[in-house]
């Protein structure tokens, strides 16, 4: 009789764990894929504004039109300011190119450089899904959040390690600390202002960043009009870079 009670108690506990905290039953990488899925659809277009804020409060703004397909294909076109208009950047996996209309041909660029200045670099602007570039080493339960320790899959990834805080309820990232291979903190990203973009896309509409390397400087990214969109693979090619505006 005593054994039966113990058995029933164990069954209750197991059921309670399975149904109240189902994500803990998943492995970390699967959880990260869910975070990615919540952040953006498989193929989409969106508009973003990047704002670089200097210590004296002055600002410089850039507006980009972006399309993405699959896990590693992405293009961003500058719509503003006039000095940058028509520039476009393409990412195919680890490859990145910059097309400048005057130059007339795409140049290979690196993920750590920044085509806009400020704290955001190219890999922030052409960010792939986190699960494409990182493996989850550990997930810790910290009350309202999960803390993910992520390690880059290859040396070509811009940041060697990420410490990502994910909201338990929404499974959306809130704060991400980016570390170099030396262990130095390069920058901190903060996602805020969750917004319903329609078609089931509910995600942060603002990303702020600061860096100990740029003391006093901040950069902000505002997301708007995130729409699912069917796109041909050929859109993500060097020959198409001069024609990206025609997708709008």
């Amino acid at each position: 009789m005593h054994c039966k009670k113990v058995f029933i108690a164990i069954v209750y506990v197991v059921f309670a764990l399975v149904y109240t905290t189902p994500l803990l039953a998943l492995d970390g990488n699967e959880m990260l894929r869910r975070v990615d899925k919540n952040m953006q659809p498989e193929a989409y277009e969106m508009y973003r504004k990047l704002i670089n804020i200097e210590p004296d409060g002055s600002k410089k703004e850039f507006v980009l039109y972006t399309v993405k397909k699959g896990q590693d294909k992405m293009v961003a076109l500058f719509l503003s300011p006039a000095s940058e208009k028509g520039r476009s950047t393409l990412r195919l996996g680890d490859n990145m190119w910059l097309y400048i209309p005057n130059v007339g041909k795409p140049l290979r660029i690196t993920s750590l450089q920044s085509v806009v200045g400020g704290v955001f670099n190219n890999s922030d602007i052409l960010r792939l899904d986190y699960s494409v570039e990182y493996n989850v080493e550990q997930v810790s339960d910290r009350g309202d959040i999960y803390l993910f320790d992520l390690k880059a899959k290859t040396s070509s990834v811009a940041y060697d390690r990420l410490k990502m805080q994910v909201d338990k309820e929404t499974l959306l990232p809130t704060t991400i600390e980016c570390y170099a291979i030396s262990g130095m903190l390069i920058k901190t990203l903060r996602y805020t202002k969750i917004k319903d973009f329609g078609n089931g896309i509910v995600r942060p509409s603002m990303l702020e960043t600061d860096s100990p390397l740029y003391k006093g400087y901040r950069s902000v990214m505002i997301f708007a009009k995130v729409n699912k969109k069917e796109l041909a693979d050929e859109v993500f090619s060097l020959n198409y870079l001069s024609k990206v505006d025609e997708l709008r």
Partner: peptide, 15 residues
């Protein structure tokens, strides 16, 4: 001489 303001706005109509 750039305009300094902590409010961030994004009016898509102009794009």
């Amino acid at each position: 001489f750039l305009y300094a303001d902590e409010e961030f706005s994004f009016d898509l109509d102009e794009f």
